[in-house]
Design a protein around this nucleic acid. Structure first.
Lengths: 241, 241
DNA sequence: CGTCAGCTTGAAGGTGCTCAATAACCGTGG
DNA sequence: CCACGGTTATTGAGCACCTTCAAGCTGACG
């Protein structure tokens, strides 16, 4: 699959990157025309189905990637199987760990995703040439650190119901960047098992808390994935903070 | 106090930075002689007692700092008072959040500390001039992100006794960089309350788990702060992972 | 219509919390 | 040197929240 996509890249060298969302909102906006052409030649796009593993724990990697659509979960697993999601990435996030050749976590597609894949050496060369690119990566790392710290508070100090409310709010914000609305509805990108692994809970507790929110008319659900929040403020009141 | 120390800086412009530990092991190693002299002129050293607040949540800040000795804790607090430590900084870490003018957490001296303080504008100018400096900051941010993610696993999935064991191991490694030893002893830089806030537990649970480790001869304590670990491997076996 | 994965619901039990009392530590001053 | 007050730490008893285990349910897809 990746070979076929790469050949499309060769035939239309500038098309992919010029129109790409990662250029407007992601790190590729740091690149000038020449660098963008280089990037276009070195990179190629791939679509992966939900559950596909991008890189395993303690595994060497030789590619970076930029997430163009879908959600990627970063997980860590203890030797006895207990698992924790330590990060969620949304488009157009950069995926990878510069200055390391081996991963210390597992990156897996939580939904169907499309990614732009670029070989590590080519990308590292661009990082050296473009301080602006490195600055954007640095900014993203700092943003991820802020997020991780917010979730540490949730994991360490919030109750199960506060965790669920906080999680729904986070998803609502990440999936629907249109803020300010009083009401929203969206599809959960994660299964109950993933939500449990993200919040440090069990599947059963996640389910129970969701039904409690539904019983209290804070949310409504159609099927098991689609969530409607008639009043975001009421949900926020449940999030603790 | 800070004014008196700054005047020392003026009289001996190159002395402080040239001998400083932050130059060998910290971010200042990125600076050439000219930049180091500039840095020396712009910065000054301060000693702060345990409990001193470096910056408050939602507070504007106009200085960065480099931690020269001691331990700084980064905390977040929910509206009802529940608190979580989201990071610990050791010498010679950089303290601050580039690209933001307002803090989203509280930074407080957990022990007596000495810091090198530098005004934000001067430091940002140096960041622009020295890609190597920015690269080191980026590296530190990535390292902190790795650490934060490791602690997310502990917070979400480890039991109280595993959390305590993991915490003791982390402190042993950060305070005593000499690795490979079978046994160690060290002083805890945190009170029981701080340890509880770091691990998402209560003071009582921290105390009980420490006495359990002592009862099982995994650790020995003299006073309430000094810990001796006769066999690090046995402690590691309690850490989960 | 059957099957399978994902989800929900129930009952029982355990880990860690709350509340409360005692004990150790430490700086101060007699 | 020791007595003293305040802070910090330990220990105990009871309880709450979340987990565990187990059973049904829902919905997608053959």
């Amino acid at each position: 699959m990746s070979i076929a996509l790469r050949s499309v890249g060769w035939r239309e060298p500038a098309l992919q990157c010029v129109l790409c969302d990662a250029r407007r909102k992601g790190i590729c906006g740091a690149l000038d025309d020449d660098q963008l052409a280089t990037f276009d030649r070195a990179s190629h796009r791939v679509v992966l189905e939900s559950g596909a593993e991008l890189v395993g724990d303690a595994e060497r990697f030789d590619h970076f990637a930029i997430l163009l659509s879908g959600v990627v979960k970063l997980t860590k697993t203890l030797s006895d199987g207990r698992q924790q999601i330590v990060g969620l990435q949304f488009a157009p996030d950069f995926l990878g760990r510069p200055f390391r050749s081996e991963s210390n976590l597992n990156a897996e597609a939580a939904t169907e995703i499309s990614v732009c894949i670029v070989p590590k050496p080519a990308f590292e060369r661009m990082m050296l040439e473009s301080p602006e690119l490195e600055r954007r990566l640095y900014r993203q790392a700092l943003d991820e650190l802020d997020q991780a710290r917010d979730w540490m508070v949730a994991l360490g100090r919030k109750t199960a119901s506060e965790k669920i409310a906080s999680f729904l709010l986070m998803i609502a914000r990440c999936v629907q960047p249109a803020a300010g609305q009083a009401s929203t509805s969206f599809d959960l990108p994660l299964t109950r098992a993933d939500i449990a692994d993200f919040l440090g809970l069990t599947i059963e507790t996640v389910s129970r808390q969701l039904t409690r929110l539904r019983r209290d008319k804070i949310i409504a659900m159609t099927g098991t994935r689609r969530i409607t929040v008639p009043n975001l403020a009421r949900l926020e009141a449940r999030a603790g903070n």
